[in-house]
């Protein structure tokens, strides 16, 4: 997709190398020159030795959108955990679930993955099947009544996707998803 495929690949590789180095330093627990160098060497060996399918990323990082996504995610995770605990501890209550299909608006693997991961951790939903070509996520809703009905559950996933897109997508991708650019 990019005009400079090689340069593009290197840019994504760099992010991976930095991430792997950070993980290595965290594992050792102290920031020293030796640890950073060893981490860099291992990261280089891993990225060049074990080739992974490259992830196409054409978006750009938006700090405001990312903070919104993160804050909402933490709130949702706390809410989801207590909701599920409540259902689990309520005597003689059988939750009635549903499997719903949600057509996502973007067709990027990366955003599909992010939305699926985040949706699995937040209230009432769990991804059962992801259809990559059509961009449809199939989710299991734990308790339809608590989620406020099928349509509310569907809207929650679409809102999640919108937050992901507003945090990472480029202007063109936002336009293509029909979200436009927020002024």
């Amino acid at each position: 997709m990019s005009l400079h495929p090689r340069r593009h690949r290197w840019r994504t590789q760099w992010a991976t190398i930095v991430w792997l180095t950070v993980v290595w330093v965290f594992l050792w627990g102290d920031l020293s020159v030796g640890n950073v160098l060893a981490g860099l060497a291992i990261a280089l060996a891993v990225t060049t030795g074990l080739r992974m399918a490259p992830i196409a990323f054409h978006g750009r990082f938006r700090p405001a959108g990312f903070l919104h996504l993160l804050g909402r995610f933490v709130l949702d995770l706390v809410k989801a955990s207590f909701e599920v605990s409540l259902i689990a501890l309520r005597p003689r209550y059988v939750p009635h679930g549903a499997v719903i299909g949600v057509q996502l608006r973007s067709h990027s693997d990366l955003y599909l993955t992010l939305t699926a991961e985040l949706s699995s951790l937040v209230p009432g939903s769990l991804v059962v099947e992801a259809h990559r070509l059509t961009g449809v996520l199939y989710l299991h809703v734990l308790d339809v009544r608590q989620s406020g009905g099928i349509e509310a559950a569907r809207q929650a996933v679409l809102d999640q996707e919108e937050r992901v897109l507003r945090a990472f997508a480029s202007d063109e991708e936002l336009d293509a998803a029909g979200l436009g650019v927020r002024a």
Partner: peptide, 30 residues
């Protein structure tokens, strides 16, 4: 407490998908 609730959920929920809910959310936050 959350880990305990997750355990109760895994035991009590009626089917596999519902059990996986208990295994992901309260367990992760716990």
């Amino acid at each position: 407490f959350l880990a305990f609730a997750a355990g109760v959920g895994v035991l009590r929920f009626p089917d596999l998908l519902a059990r996986m809910h208990a295994g992901t959310k309260p367990q992760t936050l716990g």
